[in-house]
Amino acid sequence: MAAAKSFTPLTWPDLTSRPRPTPDATVSYGPDRMQKVDVWLPKRTVKRPVVLMVHGGCWQTSIADRKLMDWIAADLRADGIAVWNIDYRGVDRDGGGYPGTFTDAAQAADQLAVDAKKYNLDLTRVVAVGHSAGGHLALWLAGRSKLPKTSPLRTAKPLKIAHVISLGGLPDLEATAASPDNGCGTEVIAKLVGTGRTDPYTDTSIPRLLPIGVPQDLINGREDRIIPYRMATNYIAKASKAGDKVILHTIPDTGHVELIAPETLAWGETKRLIRAALSESGKQ
């Protein structure tokens, strides 16, 4: 009998030690150095479909910023898809946490509509893609119209997102806070949702906003040791019960880093889903 094939996951240095591609432009939406968006533009001259990209890093600037997504952003650019790669102040930075991390993400997303004409971006074809903690923020951005009327996070005209793809995300903050094995720890959640509030999850955790009314794909590695697999399956059950169209894609021989490495099976599946979602949104 042949020996079972062992799986060796990619490490962060396996990704970040590669030659780094560069964006075509950087946009500021505030005075802080983290209040930036990198814009990746394909050569095509027709209106460009857009991926709104959100990095992870446990909602902490000291762990990751938008540059972690450079390699997949460049891969999409080469494939004819523009990328709006946002940054935001993490909970470990002045002005981050609640509400700053959320308002930053919202302002960065809404800036896309402001600059769409300048960069020839097609606002009818916007797909949000978030990795890890960024998966939570990507889903939150798509569900902003469902925020309680009393929430300070509400905005008048949130960017319309046609589809969300979460890569090893953490959509359910209540479940994350109750799970010490979540890869980010539990203390960070308290900083993210705010302390001293009667119900800190009402406008921050995606299950509280369901149904968000936007198709969702969750891509998770079966060998992910950072984000427990149940974070995806438990959320899928809640979202489906609420009436949202949500599909879980389980990728074998895949950890957490593989989800944003352009040569992997996981990223190949993500690109397939991005193309399908952009094509579908273009028909509406």
Rank of each mutant, 00 (worst) to 15 (best):
residue 238 K to L: 07
residue 218 L to Q: 09
residue 235 Y to F: 15
residue 246 V to Q: 08
residue 230 R to W: 08
residue 217 D to C: 03
residue 233 T to L: 04
residue 255 G to R: 01
residue 209 L to F: 08
residue 238 K to I: 02
residue 257 V to T: 10
residue 250 T to V: 14
residue 218 L to P: 05
residue 243 G to I: 06
residue 207 P to L: 12
residue 227 I to V: 15
residue 250 T to S: 15
residue 218 L to R: 07
residue 207 P to S: 00
residue 258 E to L: 06
residue 236 I to Y: 07
residue 241 K to C: 05
residue 224 D to F: 03
residue 225 R to S: 13
residue 241 K to H: 14
residue 229 Y to F: 15
residue 251 I to R: 11
residue 260 I to R: 02
residue 244 D to K: 14
residue 210 L to K: 09
residue 234 N to L: 05
residue 219 I to P: 11
residue 255 G to P: 05
residue 239 A to I: 07
residue 219 I to C: 05
residue 221 G to R: 06
residue 223 E to A: 14
residue 213 G to L: 00
residue 216 Q to S: 03
residue 256 H to C: 10
residue 252 P to S: 14
residue 240 S to M: 07
residue 246 V to H: 11
residue 227 I to G: 08
residue 230 R to L: 09
residue 249 H to G: 03
residue 236 I to C: 00
residue 249 H to F: 09
residue 248 L to H: 08
residue 222 R to T: 15
residue 229 Y to I: 14
residue 231 M to A: 07
residue 234 N to R: 01
residue 214 V to W: 02
residue 217 D to K: 02
residue 258 E to K: 12
residue 247 I to H: 15
residue 228 P to L: 03
residue 225 R to Q: 14
residue 220 N to V: 04
residue 249 H to A: 01
residue 223 E to D: 14
residue 215 P to T: 03
residue 208 R to S: 12
residue 247 I to Y: 11
residue 233 T to K: 02
residue 225 R to W: 13
residue 211 P to K: 05
residue 209 L to W: 01
residue 252 P to T: 14
residue 254 T to N: 02
residue 235 Y to E: 02
residue 236 I to A: 00
residue 248 L to E: 13
residue 228 P to G: 05
residue 259 L to Q: 13
residue 250 T to R: 12
residue 251 I to N: 03
residue 211 P to M: 04
residue 253 D to M: 04
residue 256 H to R: 13
residue 232 A to H: 09
residue 235 Y to G: 01
residue 222 R to C: 01
residue 245 K to M: 05
residue 217 D to G: 06
residue 227 I to A: 10
residue 253 D to F: 13
residue 258 E to M: 00
residue 238 K to A: 12
residue 213 G to C: 01
residue 210 L to R: 02
residue 229 Y to W: 12
residue 247 I to L: 13
residue 248 L to T: 11
residue 219 I to S: 08
residue 216 Q to P: 04
residue 253 D to K: 13
residue 236 I to L: 15
residue 230 R to G: 01
residue 211 P to L: 08
residue 221 G to A: 10
residue 220 N to M: 08
residue 226 I to F: 12
residue 211 P to E: 00
residue 229 Y to R: 15
residue 235 Y to M: 10
residue 246 V to A: 12
residue 256 H to P: 05
residue 257 V to P: 04
residue 216 Q to A: 04
residue 234 N to P: 07
residue 258 E to Q: 09
residue 212 I to N: 05
residue 217 D to F: 02
residue 234 N to C: 03
residue 248 L to A: 15
residue 241 K to E: 15
residue 251 I to A: 11
residue 240 S to G: 11
